[in-house]
Amino acid sequence: MGRLIARRLAFMVFVVWGVTLVTFFLSRVVPGDPAKLLAGPKASPTEVAHIRRIYGLDDPLWTQYGRYMADLLHGNLGVSFVTRREVTTDVRAFLPATLELAGYSLLLGFLAALVVGTVAGYRRGSALDAGGRLMAIAGLSVPAFWLALLLQLLLHTRLGWFPLGGRLDAGVAAPPRLTGILTLDSLLTLHLHAFVNALWHLALPVLTLAAGVFGLMTRIVRTSILEVVGEDYVRTAQGKGLTRWRVLRRHVLRNAMLPAVTVLGLEFGLLASGVFVVEAVFQWPGLGNYAFQAIQASDYNATLGATLVIAIAYVLTNLVVDLAYLYLDPRIRYT
């Protein structure tokens, strides 16, 4: 088991290094010129050249990359050309909003999938099963950006039930920042008004993102329920007179959860892409929005920093998934 973890960690380092390599050289071929951007529209060519020299943008690419990696190893991601702040500061400012959004979406999508997938698996071949499968595939088929617009149109413009975007109403004071996750901070500091307002703002973007999570997860849950229900130990549990609920909870769900855990990595990829467009539609001040604006403004350091954070989070998720799998399935642990 220790060797497995060591191998995974080594691979993680390889992947993160590969990502820096790919994104660094990709971002350097972007047609924009950050020196011009920094100098402003009225700058003279000498001023632009001066800025290029200060930031080392006229050095050979390999020298720039070496410098970037040296900084990176010291936990320094450089300065964003657009916000003029340290990228690590920016990431710290924007990441919690994204985590909050993704966390609630994952939770909602997962719970809905658990219910629908279990019902579909138990009632195989029924109309409920077909309906569940259709719902799951529909969740994966609806374009997130379009669903976001539609929800805005219906639930904001027409019915006025939910806000158009942002994390809090302009008139609501934000709770003191502890984690940056508004619902958590407001609860911990007992700012209940802010808590309700934050939840209210989360509703539409979370609903949009949860659709995809639900689609992917329902199929997995249904398939694994189908497999587990046919197992001998389930029949034994039923035979010894356990209630249906107890069999479901203790024997079926526990074993059916294994495959659901393994797709968390896939879910992450889905969420990462969803976050990009959903944050854009709902003006959500998160990492997706930050990365997107950075790409458009050829803000090298910000682009690299944001992608790096996403990549590290992704690799970490997969590591956690592997470890969870080891924990949940003793057969793997002891071989």
Binding site: F11, V19, V30, F268, S273, A311
Partner: peptide, 20 residues
């Protein structure tokens, strides 16, 4: 492995942005 270890959409967005 390297390609698969990276969220596809983000990579595609980065490449598309790079190419214009």
């Amino acid at each position: 492995d390297l390609f698969l270890a990276f969220p596809a959409f983000i990579l595609a967005a980065a490449i598309a942005a790079t190419l214009g």
